[in-house]
Design a protein around this nucleic acid. Sequence first.
DNA 1: TATAACATGTAACTAGTTACATGATTGG
DNA 2: CCAATCATGTAACTAGTTACATGTTATA
Lengths: 154, 154
Amino acid sequence: MLPYILLGFLNYKPQTGYELKQLMDKSTGHFWTAKQSQIYTTLKKMEREGWITSRVETQKARPDRVIYKVTRSGQSALGSWVSNPIREIDPHKNALLVKLFFSARAGREALLTQLRLFQNLHQQKIRLYKSQVQNVIRESAARSPRLKEDALLW
Amino acid sequence: MLPYILLGFLNYKPQTGYELKQLMDKSTGHFWTAKQSQIYTTLKKMEREGWITSRVETQKARPDRVIYKVTRSGQSALGSWVSNPIREIDPHKNALLVKLFFSARAGREALLTQLRLFQNLHQQKIRLYKSQVQNVIRESAARSPRLKEDALLW
DNA sequence: TATAACATGTAACTAGTTACATGATTGG
DNA sequence: CCAATCATGTAACTAGTTACATGTTATA
């Protein structure tokens, strides 16, 4: 999955692994996370695969930047991935449900504590989604009007 | 997580890896999956850890069964895991949202196809939850009344 | 003066998946 | 007669995490 996410972002414009990580953190990161190290190794794998090419931009007083760009082969890979619908629900792992499943012996207090804790966490998440995330998307769309269609989906 | 699930089931009664897999498939499998091979290797690791012990039951005309049993150390590990609440939402990976995020260029038809497909899949899931799963739990509880408290959580 | 931001990477590890191997019995 | 069930396991792999290493500049 990660390769397609990176392909998807690079398809908007060529970028470095560092920038891709930042993009992910405030957008797809809400439903697909990746560590910096995994992004770097995945980009190398994608380059070996021929989906992207890199060029190095030398900088004074800053580490060099490795800028990746989608190739024609990468574009077609992205295209066929997007147009090929998912036909089954991916098995979601849910640690809370696992814990609750085995919590009969924990006692009512412990159970309620756990549930209230999670309720709070989710309420925070909702607030985050309603404020910050919506703003990020609105701004992106405002910055480049040709992305209005895309922003709808974001 | 898997070790605690296995511990949780073994805590009801000693069992083989094969039986644990079947139990998982119709209960915790709905929110935490594991392949047979992973269960076997995890059980071995747990035995090395001292959480469980095994004894072999020889059978004629059937492969031998390896029956695992929770040790006192395993019980205490399970106990402290259960009573230690989860304090953050685990990042759920959601392939559908990823695909939709990058589907602006796919066209309205493709998008609607994907969404309808998923709607159907979820409706099937709901039906499954309401019928089969509820029955499995009701039966388990009926078979051993001392598990009524547990069945409530299942 | 410390820390965040910039920028890249490797090594060692854990978790999880796929594929392979074996072999008898029971039910349709 | 074929497939499913019972029952265990190993090997090779992919995905993902954690820890380490390096070094400058702007900002608080």
